[in-house]
Amino acid sequence: MSAVPLLKVKDVSKFYGSRIGCRNVSFELHPGEVLAVVGESGSGKTTLLSCLSTRLMPSSGIIEYHMRDGQYRDLAHMGEAERRFLMRTDWGFVHQNPADGLRMTVSAGANVGE
């Protein structure tokens, strides 16, 4: 296992008004590790993964990724094009509902190209 984490999540919370999506989640993920996020329905798994994938911005906390240039970048401060590139090259995300991950107004080929 590498001493340098690929992903550092520090005190990530997401609130929907007064409702809690997830609160104070922290972990590090190292190369070669597998992390399972488990919990009851409504416990915040999808909210957390949406924050990690930048589909939602967390209400608080920091999500840093170890980029190919060796630097850590806070995902919330990356531009849209840079985040989309990261999702196409380094990350994979399988949505529960396929429509959440596809652009339904373009062809299947355009979605695959993305």
Rank of each mutant, 00 (worst) to 15 (best):
G61V: 09
K14P: 02
H77T: 12
D74K: 09
L35R: 05
T89G: 01
D69H: 09
V34C: 02
G39T: 13
S26V: 12
E64F: 09
L52S: 00
S26A: 11
K14Y: 01
K45T: 12
H95A: 14
R23F: 12
R84F: 05
D74H: 07
C22P: 04
G21V: 02
L49A: 10
G17D: 13
V38D: 01
T54W: 05
D90N: 06
I62M: 12
T105Q: 13
N97P: 00
L29Y: 01
D74M: 04
A108Q: 03
D100M: 06
C22S: 02
T54G: 01
W91T: 10
L7W: 07
L35Y: 09
S53M: 11
F93H: 15
G42Y: 06
Y65K: 06
M87E: 04
V12P: 08
L102R: 10
A110F: 01
G61K: 03
R88M: 13
N24D: 14
H77K: 15
P31G: 01
V37M: 04
G44W: 08
S18K: 11
V112P: 03
F85V: 11
N24Q: 03
G61P: 11
Y16V: 13
Y72V: 06
K8N: 01
R23H: 14
G61W: 07
G39K: 05
E64R: 15
P98W: 10
A108D: 02
H30F: 10
T46M: 07
H30Q: 02
G44I: 06
K45P: 13
E40T: 08
I63S: 03
R103W: 13
G101C: 10
L86T: 00
V37P: 03
S53Y: 13
V38G: 04
V37D: 03
P98A: 12
T47C: 09
L35S: 07
L35V: 14
K10R: 15
L49H: 11
G21H: 07
G42V: 12
F27W: 09
K10C: 06
S50R: 11
P58M: 05
P31E: 00
L86E: 01
K8S: 07
V106I: 15
L29I: 02
R55D: 02
V37C: 06
T47A: 06
R84G: 11
S41V: 13
K10S: 12
G113Y: 10
E28D: 15
S13L: 09
V34P: 01
M1D: 01
Q71W: 02
A110N: 08
V94L: 15
D74Q: 14
G61E: 12
S60V: 06
G70I: 03
H95C: 15
G21N: 06
L7S: 09
M67W: 08
H77V: 00
S50W: 02
R19Q: 11
H66E: 04
A3T: 14
G109L: 05
Q96I: 14
Y16N: 07
L86A: 01
H66A: 05
R103I: 14
Q71F: 03
S59P: 11
V112G: 07
M1L: 10
G92R: 07
S26P: 10
G39D: 08
F15G: 08
G109Q: 13
